[in-house]
Design a binder for these strands. Sequence first.
DNA 1: CTGAAAGCGCTTACAG
DNA 2: CTGAAAGCGCTTACAG
Lengths: 367, 367
Amino acid sequence: MDSTTIKEVAKIAKVAVSTVSRVINDHPDVKAETKQKVLKVIKRLGYRPHSGARQLVRETSETICFIMSNRDVINPFHSRILFGVEKYARSVAHSVIFLEFDYPPHVPPDELVLPRIIWERGAVDGLVLAGTNYPNFVRAVKALGIPFVLFGSNVVGRLAMNDLDSVWLDHRGGAQQATEYLIKLGHKKIWFAGELSLPWGRACHQGYASAMRESGLETKALDKQKTESLFEFGSRCGAEIAAGSDTASAVLAGDDHIALGILAGLDRGGRKVPDDVSVVGFDYIEQFDYLPLPLTTLRVLKEQVGEELARMLFERLANPKARPMRSVIPTELMIRKSTAPPGGVNSDIPLAPGSESAEQDPQVSRL
Amino acid sequence: MDSTTIKEVAKIAKVAVSTVSRVINDHPDVKAETKQKVLKVIKRLGYRPHSGARQLVRETSETICFIMSNRDVINPFHSRILFGVEKYARSVAHSVIFLEFDYPPHVPPDELVLPRIIWERGAVDGLVLAGTNYPNFVRAVKALGIPFVLFGSNVVGRLAMNDLDSVWLDHRGGAQQATEYLIKLGHKKIWFAGELSLPWGRACHQGYASAMRESGLETKALDKQKTESLFEFGSRCGAEIAAGSDTASAVLAGDDHIALGILAGLDRGGRKVPDDVSVVGFDYIEQFDYLPLPLTTLRVLKEQVGEELARMLFERLANPKARPMRSVIPTELMIRKSTAPPGGVNSDIPLAPGSESAEQDPQVSRL
DNA sequence: CTGAAAGCGCTTACAG
DNA sequence: CTGAAAGCGCTTACAG
């Protein structure tokens, strides 16, 4: 029905197919008159060039693929990253294929069955690997020879990152900044509650520990079990803090959901926030604005992560031989109502640096 | 580097290209021995067939496109629909291109500049139109002749739906069920708070009004202004209810965010929920589980909407001549803590029908 | 079961 | 500025 080809357009317009091709590709060397004539026929016939034929003959599909690996739960976090990728891709006239891909971590790279769309040649120009990834898949993609950029913060397992393009969230820096802020408020007994078996949990802990060490303070970390939910873990932490005598006056949580659990546990234990205990979350979640007590938290600019992933991929495509790149997206300390000096005095502590900053530029480095 | 073609494989394996083609397409008429020989060469050379060449010569790209139109805010709602679409597409070995597309409502269809990926022929086999759409774009897509399915609930403006494939959320039925539940609890003064200028707001209101009418009760609707946020609107409603003397004992909100605002407004006005006023939301939002008072609300199965959109599209692709289809996805009444009989007595009111049901089948009809 | 050849719908040197 | 021709990498009748 609508399968008009360039040949038919050429015949009806009484020109050669090459002329029609020049017209649809906006080639400058076409007489204005001829161009108008051809355009009219194209419009009349409803001609649309065939995508596959173009891909075959050009070197590009003008499409990239966003792979969300091993998404085990509905994850607004990663969909925001996707939106950022799509936004950037659109700005450079590319399309994004969205693919979920689940795979076991322990299958050797050459035994992984890759999705058709990335296995076939020419369907996509490059890949963004997001979601939770393991080394085997990253190696399999590498073996394919297709350009890709990796969201590094969510890679579980040992993988050499120095020869890869990657974008990271600054969990470490964020946690450090938050801890320094708590210290500046006057807190000494500051605990960390997070998932130390996961890389981003460890990164948070490192930032926390580093800030504590610099101030000569003792660290204490509460570790999440695999079996409990973030909220349950938080509640447990809150209960523990509420019960103890020589207990924390402030906690840094590795996630907003943990922080909410802590609030609940403290509340059940009869402790007030922020008067008795200060709580800081991680990864500002807009929906939690409706909570009675707005959390002090580290805001994560998810769309910026996506845009940076895409930007880096296109830079790689433009420059295949360049050295590997690494980019770190800063977090933003949002000081709200769940933190106060020990004792809950409402003194005029100045905001920590960066807390009022707008979107910051990522820190990009050549490796 | 990795641009091995079928020709090279054929030459090295000492067979014809047609034989290689049969092997990679799992054609049955290949001697096992030959197949093994070819497979070995393919593996050794890292041969991957070219996607564009296949598209050109086959009739399908095995790709569909999910278009999210005019998304003005970060919208977890529509990303969940996308996930459902991708899930179904993957189950039938197709890829999904994710495209955001913003357009003005008043440009005539033939003047809209369509995204390259849907304008080119053969790049995608069909389209899912989600997000907020206006008639002009739907008509432009129709003129393209490419099969598509429309998320009908979010279409703003007058558009004949009878000759289109569409999937709908049962706003009307859900609102009716929720209202009937409130009536059964014993409420008489039940108000509705929603956005009547939008089609889904009107649909909710219709269901509400219909249930009220059947019980001979008077309706009262509070309408959201364009300028206020959902939460602000809700707060205003809550304040109005708290202030009045001849006031509502229950409210049905057209959205969970409105319901939260109502809670806040009532609280500020000194009214207790559910003792003084019952509140029902719409579109269960998981994150709100952490609120002190879990909302009674209508759960919307967003991924199911997506899966149904995709299912319908593939049905259309398999059967281009079939009559237009329409499918309605039911909502699910979740009874929690924000509703009670008037006066707040904790009597043993039975659950409303459907409140405990698992995922229901959509209601599909041929038009 | 296998091969030689035509053809899918474009773009791109190459002539003129 | 325009046209004729080659070629991109596959698949698919058609022969054998």
